[in-house]
Amino acid sequence: MVYFLYIIIVIAFLDTFSQLPIIAPFAQSLGASSLLIGVIVGIYSLTNMGGNILAGQWIDKFGRKKILVIGLLFVSVCLLGYTFVTTPLQLLLIRFIHGIGGGLLVPAAFALLGDKSRSTNRGKTMAFSGACVGISAIIGPAFGALMTNFFGIDWVFYSISGLFALTALIITFVLTENYTMKLEENKFDFSQIVKLLRLPALINAYIGAFSLMLTLGILAYMLPLKIAAAGQGVAFSGMLLSTFGIVAIIFFLLPTNQIFDQVKREKTVIAGMIFVTIALTILSLFELIVVLFIAMFFYGIGFACIFPSVTALVIDHSNKNERGRAFGLFYAFFSLGVVVGSFIVGALNLAPNQGLLLGAIIMISLAMLIKSRIKIIDTYQ
């Protein structure tokens, strides 16, 4: 059953990653301004935050399976809506609605996985889940770019919509619910959210999640535009974005995954943030194709260090009856990172190289913040 959950995670992230190389150019082709492109890219993640927080409460109230199926079906319908878009404002609206539904999926899947993980190998379990995200990061951008080139952008949405609907149907008959809510947890209590927002270890997890997706939001916006300005097609953007996923998967599946249960989680997060900073700096300074691939190699290592560590922190510091809320908040910070990243570079009307360099500066600053907080964690424990 755990392996089935891994497959679900691959599919859940496929929606987001398949759109990375196509949304900014799609918005641009509809006549959107630089600022509006940033809003269009980021609005999904903004409403995704709301979906994450709602999902966290519902997952702990109604169960993981129900919310997962509802989210898959909701997103399936939303994806079909993209095929009717003809103006930037219509694209903005469908991204707004899509984000709400998308916010239900990932927290439910990871709450299920967290329930089944053992305390002795949570880092390794999350590394395997990271490999699933990496697989999506490989397949998604390449699929979205190639499908757009050969069949048109509508077929990206048709195909992913069908996949989500089929997955919801399979889950309905195959997956068993492994969580039962206690009666005293039937009512929403805001203090439960406050508690999860105040735990020092979870704060570091939230910062790590925010920083990781902030850079991905900047990449989703700036890298395709940089490649297009250099005269390359959308397929090349997809190849670059897929590269970091390949590297991350290798890192997750090799014996290197043992470090996630042997090294303090915050330390691997900081190491990953340094690698991401190096990658963004290289991307901002160079145009040579070989160098761009090297940069994405470093980004892949950074992703591989950050993702399992921050997700394992959430499991470590939440019990089963609050894990849905913990992951809901966690992925809300994921979404917030994409919102902030894409909005800042769009609002400042930055050139691609400037936007990528800004991402590097923000990332290293947040890495220093987590490092300064490690002493707080040690004191708290």
Rank of each mutant, 00 (worst) to 15 (best):
A248G: 05
I7G: 15
S284Q: 02
I70R: 09
L20Q: 10
A165W: 03
L14Y: 04
P141N: 00
F244S: 13
S284H: 04
Y221F: 13
G31H: 08
L91F: 01
I246Q: 10
V338E: 13
F157E: 03
I362Y: 02
L92I: 00
L225S: 07
L254V: 09
L79K: 02
V263W: 08
V2G: 11
S237P: 05
D378K: 15
F110E: 09
F286Y: 14
F343A: 10
F17M: 14
I278L: 13
V10Y: 12
N186L: 14
T379W: 15
Q381L: 14
A228Y: 12
L348F: 11
F62P: 02
A347C: 04
P141T: 02
F188K: 09
D115G: 07
Q258P: 05
F330M: 09
V234L: 11
K116S: 15
I153P: 03
L288F: 11
K264F: 15
F327D: 00
L366H: 03
I370A: 05
S242F: 06
F157Q: 06
L183I: 14
I8E: 03
L285T: 04
P25F: 05
S29H: 09
S237Q: 01
P21G: 06
L216E: 12
W58D: 05
I7K: 08
S129R: 06
L216R: 10
